[in-house]
Every structure is written in structure tokens, then in C-alpha cells.
Simulated assay, not measured.
Amino acid sequence: MADYPAELVRKRYLFDGSPVTIRPIRAEDKPLEQEFVQHLSADSRYKRFMSTLKELPPGKLKYLTEIDYVRHLALVAIIQRDGQDVEIGVARYVAGPSGDECEFAIAIDDEWQGSGVAGILMLELIDAARARGMRKMEAFILAANNNMIKFAHQLSFALHRDPDDPGMFHAVRSL
């Protein structure tokens, strides 16, 4: 496991001027990540995990928070609310077998969708992936997830229907 990449910690501002901290997730963020997932609407959880889970099982929670920061990187968006850290979004990539391509996923708290946080997270994630030797990024997106399809297009991902599953789009971008 690589050292915590403190150089990826950034302070950014949302469209309304609200400050947000973008940083790599840490193993001790398990409660923060669980609370984030529980707070998502059922629709948002389904679009992210493609299942109807209400909370993350312990093994999945460990997988999402105990990462190596090279082959698996997750960036969280954190705001302060009543003196406490609150996760409002997360974007991650996981490298494929070749080590130079990765699959990404992103989830934004329903209350913060449209705030600009998704774009901030993805641009930081793309830069970090490129810096770690990734040459291609991809995702599989539910065909019914119109907002994500539009977002991927805005980020210059090429989108094609998955020939094996017409209910999915395959988004690909060279880095």
C-alpha cells in the first residue's frame, strides 16, 4: 500500500461559492462512507451500485476505504456541517489487469447534485489517474441514467451502447 497521497488534498469551491475539500479516502473514513451511502436516495444508490442495497456490507465498505492509492484511488468531497465532516460525493477508479486502464464510478449526494462537485471530483480523478500511468478510463452506465450519460459526454467520454447488454452504455476516454 502506497503512502497517503497528501498532495491530492485540494480546497475547491462549488458553483454557489461553498468551500469543499477534495481528498483521497482513508481507511478511517468507513463511518463517513457508510453514512454517505445511507443518505443517498434509493435511485442514486441503484444508479451507483446497480443494486438495491441500503448500506454497505462490511466487506464492501472495507474494499471502498482501504485502497492502495495507485491501482485503486477514491477521492471524496467533504464539507463542514456543524463542525463535522460530511461526505457529499465520491469518485474512484480501479485499474484493470493491464495496469494502464481503469474503470471509474462516481456518486453525489442527492442534495448536492448540480452543485459542481461532480465535475470537480472527476477532473481531479482524471488528473490523478493520468499521473499514475493510466492511459484509458471507462465506465458502464445504466441506459436509464440520463444525467450520467450527459455528464460523461461533457467530460469527453465516447459513449456506445453495450452490444451485450442494451440496458448499458460503455463510456471510454483516453487520458
Rank of each mutant, 00 (worst) to 15 (best):
M1D: 13
D3H: 13
P5R: 00
L8R: 11
Y13W: 08
L14A: 10
F15I: 02
I22C: 01
P24G: 10
P31W: 05
E35P: 01
F36L: 12
F36N: 05
V37S: 02
Q38A: 14
Q38H: 05
L40K: 04
S44I: 02
G59T: 10
T65K: 09
E66R: 13
Y69G: 09
V70K: 14
V70M: 01
I78R: 03
D82G: 12
D85K: 11
G89C: 12
V90A: 14
Y93K: 00
V94I: 14
P97S: 10
P97H: 07
E101S: 15
C102F: 12
E103L: 05
F104C: 12
E111W: 09
G114R: 06
S115M: 06
S115L: 06
V117A: 14
L121M: 08
M122A: 12
L123F: 01
A128G: 02
G133A: 04
M134G: 07
R135I: 05
M137N: 02
I141C: 11
L142M: 14
A144G: 07
K150A: 14
S156Y: 10
L159W: 06
H160P: 00
D165E: 13
D165S: 11
P166M: 04
M168P: 00
F169R: 04
L175K: 04
L175Q: 10
L175H: 06
